[in-house]
Structure formats: C-alpha cells, structure tokens
C-alpha cells in the first residue's frame, strides 16, 4: 500500500498527462455534439471581439483596394442602369411571367447585412464568424450569401456573433441544381482548393455542358431557389459509377470575404409546421 502511494506520488504527472490528453481528445471528436462548446470556438465573445479588432484593422488597410473595386462596380452599375432604362422605355409596362417568377422567389425572404470578423480557407474544416447574432435576428440554419453567391449556413448564433459553416468545409452539404435543366445534386467540398467544390448525385443521363450555371435548388427552407453558386468546370463519372460528379468553380471568393448577408425566411416557421403536420398525418394513416 505504501509503495503504491509512493508510486502515485512520484509519477503523478503521468496521470495528469493522460487526463489532459483525454480532455483534448474529447474536445476533438465531440466538437459538433457539444452545445456548450461555443466557449471553445472563436464565436465566444472575448475572442470574437479581439478578432473583430483585427478584422477592422485589416479592413482599414484594404480600404484602397475596396475603393477601387467600388468605383469600378459603380461605373458598371451606372452603365447597366442606362441600358436597363433604355430597355425599360421600350418594353411594355405589364410584367412578364419570368419577372413575376423572380419576384416571387425572393418574396418572403429578407436580408441582414453582416461583416466577417474571422475566416479561414486552408483547413479541412473552415469556419467563418460574423458580427451579427440573435439580437439582430440571426438564428441557426439560416443561409448566408455574399455579392458573389452562396457562402454557407449559420451553425451557431451567439448574442452578437454567429458562426457559419461555409461551402468550403468538408461537413457542408447544399442542395443545388443546374440552371434551366432542373437536375439537382448535392454540393460538397473535398478539402483541397477553396476555389472548387463538387456537385454529386446528378443522374448519369442528365445532359450537362462545361460552363453551365449551378444555383441553389430551393428544396430546403435555408436558401431561396436560384441563388448563384458557381459554374461547371468539368463533368466526370462519380467513383460509385451510378451518377455524375461535376467540378464546380465557386463564385464566392472565400479568401477575400468581408461583407455578407444572412437570408431570413419569413415564412419558414409556417412551412416547417406544415411539414411536421404532414409527417404526423402520414404516421396516423399507417
């Protein structure tokens, strides 16, 4: 007994080592299950505030480039306005069916503007933190878009900051379709370059050309349909041989992301309660 106590006293650092490694391992493998784990991510208040200072500083340094981009965009938009005004004066004032369709697809959605405070593109599990949270109306499972297209989905909303699972995270999975053909598949990322992702599970008989546009399908309530995702770069057979796998050049530049919008679906609660109701009635019928 005495020897045992001596042994424990002499080698107590081994026990501490094992305990701490077990804690590390638990954090590593259960990160996504832990609801309380927000303390261990950069969405925690203190860390987000430090990151925000850093992001503000970097934004200030980048102002020159941003100014140049804005000027260029302004000129482009002015031109477009001129063209559109000319087109409008020609066109009939009764809205066409396509115009009505576009308006309908954005009806019921509103946008919350936010600034990116921390971002990563080099890891296999990238996360983005933005400076809007529950107090601003952001909740989990809301879609996030930028001027270029789809960014990702909110996975945790704190009071003032939220964490986003971007398209370029191996855990990301977004339902997308090919514009004008309605074949749909799921967009996944393989952990390589932040410029490309893969559209999987598209049927083999689908006729898809390189250069086709990929957009959100709107099958979930997260994104409205028709939000731009990217363009097809190459079409291959999937490893399982049962479907096509397309390499998609993502339209969002994750390396230079600074301003994003969170998509709020005003009719979402209604839609979800309807789906729940349907599921229940289905069970009852059986």
């Amino acid at each position: 007994m005495h020897n045992l106590l001596e042994f424990l006293k002499k080698y107590n650092y081994w026990f501490l080592f094992i305990v701490l490694e077990i804690i590390s391992g638990t954090l590593l493998f259960h990160f996504n299950q832990f609801q309380g784990s927000v303390w261990f991510t950069s969405a925690n208040e203190v860390v987000a505030r430090i990151d925000r200072q850093y992001a503000d500083m970097m934004a200030f340094i980048r102002l020159k480039q941003v100014n140049k981009d804005l000027t260029r965009q302004n000129i482009r938009l002015q031109r477009q306005v001129n063209e559109l005004r000319a087109a409008l004066s020609k066109a009939n004032h009764v809205p066409t069916p396509t115009e009505r369709q576009v308006l309908d697809s954005l009806k019921g959605y509103s946008l919350i503007e936010a600034r990116v405070v921390s971002n990563s593109i080099l890891k296999s599990e990238n996360y983005i933190v933005i400076d809007k949270g529950q107090d601003d109306g952001v909740h989990t499972e809301m879609g996030v878009i930028a001027s270029g297209g789809v960014v990702g989905i909110v996975v945790y909303a704190g009071r003032h900051y939220s964490m986003i699972l971007p398209t370029i995270n191996v855990k990301s999975n977004i339902s997308c379709r090919i514009r004008h053909s309605n074949y749909f598949g799921s967009l996944q990322w393989d952990g390589g370059s932040s410029l490309y992702a893969y559209l999987n599970d598209v049927p083999r008989y689908a006729k898809i050309k390189v250069g086709d546009y990929v957009e959100t399908s709107g099958y979930s309530t997260v994104f409205p349909s028709g939000i731009f995702v990217g363009r097809v770069v190459s079409v291959d057979n999937a490893p399982d041989g049962l479907s096509l796998q397309m390499k998609v050049n993502l339209s969002t530049d994750f390396g230079a992301l600074s301003d994003v919008c969170v998509v709020v679906n005003d009719e979402r609660a209604e839609l979800e309660s309807l789906q729940l109701h349907l599921m229940k009635s289905g069970e009852n019928a059986q």
Partner: peptide, 25 residues
C-alpha cells in the same frame, strides 16, 4: 506544472483557431 501549462497554452490557441483539442494535445 509543465504538463498543465502546456495544456493551457494549447487550449487557449485552439479557442482562437477553431481547432478543438489539437494544439492542446
């Protein structure tokens, strides 16, 4: 003490980089 400081340093860095437990381990 050295083991404990090592864990603490790793954990603090993990919180900033969203790499739970990796640096700590």
């Amino acid at each position: 003490v050295v083991v404990a400081w090592g864990f603490l340093m790793g954990l603090c860095q993990d919180i900033f980089t969203n790499t739970p437990g990796m640096n700590a381990a």
